[in-house]
């Protein structure tokens, strides 16, 4: 197999359904279809943005890829090899290569540990043969990578600001030398000026270390800024995927279009253009609509939308959209 040219991560028809229990004897009464048939690739040294609102399943997708959540069916391939076929040694290896950055900078750090213990934990559990002194040195190097001084080694999470905690979280993710990082809303809990610091850091790390990232966010402007490609998720499915500039300037799916128009804009020509306001809330992922899952809120929906499940199809090179109304967008 030619592993060099295979994408770093390939996700094929991923499904993650979670049972809802209730009633007498705690039976399974239905299933939340959090992720319902999702396929995409993440290439080497690429940032793939995954946009979506609450209930879109974007976090579940990210957590399934790094095996933090179980998935129901579908394939996840890492450098061309199926994760399901991994033996324990390969899983151990995989653990070194993939990492996660969390949304809540405080909650993702153990309040009882100091920074040194936090960032060196992956080194210990993954069995890096390092002495205590080497580990401390490595911890200092990791902090340096995220622009924190050695003085922070002894601090505890409660003694740091949100931005500093997030840097420590990133340093921990870098500890074992990963190739792929899932960043789950890494800046949305931070203040605006701190968001910029962390965004810059992520972009810089991608370039310096040759990382690939799955950047999960609900902020499309930030996503366009940082990502090479963007995938838009809605109710457990990918609606549209393509180069970020194309997605944001000429969306080919009505949901992406509505999402973009919902972003309050400022700068040149603000307040121009009519906003598409979607009616109602997203449907319940326990019983998604038939056909296209977006049809209940779509301004362009027609009768066929209830029957045909739209597949992702190429609209321009590398730009795929799952919508049968190719005549309107």
């Amino acid at each position: 197999m030619n592993t060099m040219h295979a994408p770093l991560i390939e996700v094929r028809d991923l499904r993650a359904w979670y049972p809802v229990r209730g009633g007498v004897a705690n039976r399974v009464i239905s299933e939340v279809k959090a992720v319902n048939g999702v396929s995409f690739d993440v290439k080497h040294n690429e940032i793939l943005g995954l946009a979506g609102e609450s209930g879109s399943g974007k976090s579940t997708i990210g957590r399934s890829i790094i095996r933090l959540n179980p998935h129901t069916s579908g394939q996840i391939r890492f450098k061309g090899a199926d994760l399901a076929d991994f033996n324990s040694r390969e899983i151990h290896d995989f653990r070194r290569k993939v990492q996660l950055i969390f949304q809540d900078p405080y909650a993702s750090l153990d309040p009882r540990m100091n920074v040194e213990e936090i960032v060196t934990e992956p080194l210990i559990v993954l069995g890096f043969p390092l002495s205590k002194r080497q580990r401390r040195q490595k911890a200092a190097e990791l902090l340096d990578m995220v622009s924190l001084s050695e003085a922070y080694l002894e601090r505890r999470p409660s003694e740091m600001s949100g931005g500093q905690c997030q840097r420590v979280g990133i340093a921990r993710a870098l500890a074992a030398g990963p190739e792929f990082i899932v960043a789950d809303e890494p800046v949305s809990a931070l203040d605006v000026s701190i968001q910029a610091q962390i965004t810059n850091l992520l972009g810089d790390l991608k370039e310096r270390l040759g990382l690939s990232l799955l950047f999960i966010s609900h902020d499309l402007a930030l996503m366009q800024y940082l990502s090479d490609r963007v995938a838009v998720a809605y109710l457990g499915k990918i609606m549209e995927i393509g180069p970020s500039d194309q997605i944001c300037s000429s969306p080919k799916h009505p949901y992406t279009e509505a999402l973009l128009s919902a972003v309050p804009k400022f700068g040149e020509g603000h307040r121009a253009g009519k906003r598409i306001v979607l009616s109602g809330d997203a449907p319940n992922p326990i019983s998604p609509p038939s056909g296209c899952v977006f049809r209940t809120r779509c301004p362009y929906a027609i009768g066929e939308c209830a029957e045909i499940v739209p597949q992702l199809s190429e609209r321009s090179p590398g730009h795929l959209s799952a919508c049968i109304r190719t005549d309107v967008l």
Binding site: I66, F102, S108, R112, M113
Partner: peptide
């Protein structure tokens, strides 16, 4: 259910390590 436990899992920690290092001290 705290994210820092997830973080330890992602780092490759097993249940014994997590109980000893994260759950028990808390």
């Amino acid at each position: 259910t705290q994210p820092f436990v997830d973080a330890a899992k992602v780092a490759g920690a097993g249940p014994i390590w997590i109980m000893r290092k994260h759950v028990w001290p808390n």
